[in-house]
Amino acid sequence: MNSARSPLPARLVAAAGQWLPPLIVAAGFLGLWALLTLTIYKGKGFLVPAPQDVAAAFAENFAVIALASLTTLREAAFGYLIAIALGILIAAVLSQSRILERSFYPYAVLLQTVPVVAIAPLIVLWFGYNDFSVIIISLIISLFPIINNTLLGLQSTPRSLVELFAMHRTNRLATFWKLRAPSALPSIMAGLKISAGLSVIGAIVGEFIIGSGGTQGGLGVQIIFAQGRMYTSLLFAEVICATLLGFLFFLIVTLISNALLGHWHESAS
């Protein structure tokens, strides 16, 4: 009887060990934030508003923030999904030939190093002031980590296994799907985790630069509006929502990663 009940306490202890530390850190952060607003920034809510003022601003402007969050979510999601498809495809092609890699990989690096602000006028000229331009910027910012990590994973397949497949006269396509792709999966998921947050950052940056074709814009547009009105409490609320949006993307990718990797890879433990 005791052995049948033992897994439940063990799971509770494991859950507490997993969630308690970040909750303690969050409580400490909120406490420090509140302390600062009562001491150093007392009477200076235009610089650092109190947590309760941020919560009040969020509740008062909930409809606007929710609609803006959905707009940014849509833009970031489209940019991220396109980046996943393009990134994995490009990495798969480059992994098949050293000549292709040496010819095109430097341009993938170059794409990552070009400041988005510098190419934003071209994006606007080509695609206009609309949501699609924001999606393009989100795509550009989140693409390189996927290409880099996927390519690294595909090229890191153990040589002994590759030679074993060659001994059995396995063709290149079958070797890719049955050996290289599964072996690269942990690296691919690592790249997707990095790009998950970057896609939201790209959408926010795109809204800063381009705006939005919607009726009220995404979180980036609303942040600019709040800054212009010196409504710092609302500004904090919108920044926190943007942060949570990026965390949501990361959490979803992490759950998918754990489901795919299961118990066969250490990163899923």
Rank of each mutant, 00 (worst) to 15 (best):
P51Y: 09
D53P: 12
A55T: 14
A55E: 11
F58D: 11
A59P: 08
E60W: 11
E60F: 14
E60C: 10
E60L: 15
N61W: 10
F62I: 15
F62Y: 15
A63Q: 15
A63R: 14
A63N: 14
I65Y: 03
A66L: 14
A68F: 05
A68G: 12
A68R: 10
L70S: 10
L70M: 15
L70I: 15
L70T: 12
T71E: 14
T71C: 12
T72Y: 04
T72A: 09
L73A: 12
R74Q: 15
R74T: 15
R74N: 11
E75Y: 11
E75L: 10
A77P: 10
A77L: 15
Y80W: 09
Y80A: 07
I82R: 00
A83V: 08
I84D: 04
I84V: 14
A85W: 11
A85V: 15
L86G: 02
G87N: 02
G87S: 06
I90C: 06
I90H: 04
A91K: 06
L94C: 05
S95H: 10
S95C: 08
Q96T: 07
S97E: 04
R98C: 07
R98A: 09
R98Y: 11
R98P: 10
R98Q: 12
I99Y: 10
I99S: 10
L100M: 08
S103E: 03
S103D: 03
S103M: 11
Y105R: 06
Y105G: 07
P106W: 01
Y107D: 04
A108I: 13
A108V: 13
A108L: 13
V109D: 02
L110N: 00
L110I: 08
Q112I: 05
T113M: 04
V114T: 08
V114H: 03
V116L: 12
V117A: 13
V117R: 05
A118C: 02
A120R: 00
A120C: 09
A120S: 12
P121V: 05
P121N: 09
P121H: 06
I123A: 09
L125H: 11
L125M: 13
L125S: 13
W126K: 07
W126G: 06
G128F: 08
G128D: 08
D131F: 06
D131Q: 11
V134A: 05
V134M: 03
I135D: 00
I135G: 03
I136A: 03
S138E: 04
S138T: 01
S138K: 00
I140C: 07
I141H: 00
F144C: 00
I146C: 01
I147C: 01
I147G: 01
I147P: 00
N148H: 09
N148G: 04
N149G: 04
L151M: 01
L151Y: 03
L152S: 08
L154M: 05
Q155F: 04
Q155N: 09
S156D: 06
S156Y: 03
T157N: 02
P158F: 01
